[in-house]
Design a binder for these strands. Structure first.
Length: 309
DNA sequence: AAGCTACCGGTTCGTAGCGC
DNA sequence: GCGCTACGAACCGGTAGCTT
């Protein structure tokens, strides 16, 4: 097979390329890879010859990536990271007590991470790894044991375990609530929101309509109205943080903010929580349901949620 | 199985260019 | 001039494939 018919380059050249691109130095790449500078230089030359494009601009006492080199690095680096991670997972001692959990960034940041120490206390032999991502992952391929996701009603995958229904309600910090009352701008009824700043999640693609203020207003039978201002954040945990700091009124996802409400740091406004047609579920990866640590983790999440509802 | 050969990927050593 | 860089030639050792 000649090189023009090969779709992959010689794979042993890629770590040299990645290291040289990262350090922008053949010498430093060589030190990292326990090779000589010359060997790295030859690897890069061989790769460039295979690809038919120049990856580096050789300058005096300096190295720079060409545009092609930058583009190639953007693809190659994560692939090598994946291979390294997969290799590490295969080679690490099989203690059987490492549990990898994927969930959304918002659930990880606002619910899971603050409670994880409690799970560790109850199950000190289980090492939990959190892979927070909004993407739907291939659990088997990514080495994930358990996923926690909020799933629309009717779309639950077979075997998923319901954890908690999702409710939303306007929330603000207790201090903000009191100050608003003292300033004669009380938060007694939904219409009072017009005198306050509303905190939004930046959602240009409409992925999370159920936590949009517009949806809540519509469901509450309110005509759209302008408010004193808006604050917008990219992630839901930032929304919660802003509400805690008294920067305005946020749309509270009750499962995620229940601890703050219980500690009276956050106040649920207008006394009414809207139930959404979606709920948090735990999903086991194929084969993971039989692992005791996976069962322990899911049971613990259920118990934690139930105890705070 | 043993020997030969070609090839590959590495090293060593030397060269050249440039900035300080 | 020194120190750092990349590059190239010559060479070495291991391996795969072929021949006997």
């Amino acid at each position: 097979m000649d090189k023009t018919s090969r779709s992959l380059p010689p794979l042993d050249l890629l770590p040299g390329f990645e290291a040289a691109a990262r350090h922008l130095s053949f010498t430093k790449a060589a030190e990292e890879l326990f090779l000589t500078q010359s060997a790295v230089s030859r690897q890069i030359l061989a790769l460039e010859e295979f690809l038919g494009v120049q990856l580096f601009e050789r300058r005096h006492r300096a190295l720079a990536l060409t545009e092609a080199g930058q583009a190639y690095l953007r693809t190659v680096a994560p692939v090598l990271d994946h291979v390294r991670e997969a290799t590490r997972r295969l080679r690490e001692p099989r203690t059987g007590h490492v549990l990898t959990v994927t969930t959304t960034l918002s659930f990880a940041a606002t619910w899971l991470v603050p409670r994880l120490a409690r799970f560790r206390k109850e199950h000190p032999r289980v090492d939990v790894r959190i892979a927070a991502s909004g993407d739907v992952l291939d659990m088997a391929r990514e080495g994930i044991d358990v996923a926690i996701r909020d799933i629309p009603q009717g779309h639950e995958p077979a075997g998923s375990i319901p954890l908690a229904g999702e409710h939303v309600a306007p929330i603000c910090s207790a201090e903000y609530f009191e100050e608003a009352r003292a300033a004669k701008r009380p938060l007694a009824k939904p219409e009072d929101l017009r005198h306050h700043v509303l905190i939004h999640v930046h959602d240009p693609t409409g992925k999370w309509p159920w936590i949009a203020w517009e949806t809540w207003m519509e469901s509450s039978g309110l005509e759209p109205f302008t408010t004193a201002g808006t604050l917008t954040f990219g992630q839901y945990d930032q929304v919660v943080q802003a509400a805690l700091l008294g920067q305005g009124i946020a749309m509270g996802r009750m499962t995620l903010v229940s601890d703050h409400v219980r500690r009276k740091q956050l106040v649920v406004l207008f006394g009414k929580r809207q139930r959404l047609a979606r709920a948090y579920h735990a999903i086991y990866a194929p084969g993971a349901a039989a692992r005791p640590e996976a069962q322990q983790f899911v049971s613990w999440v259920r118990a934690e949620i139930a105890s705070r509802e």
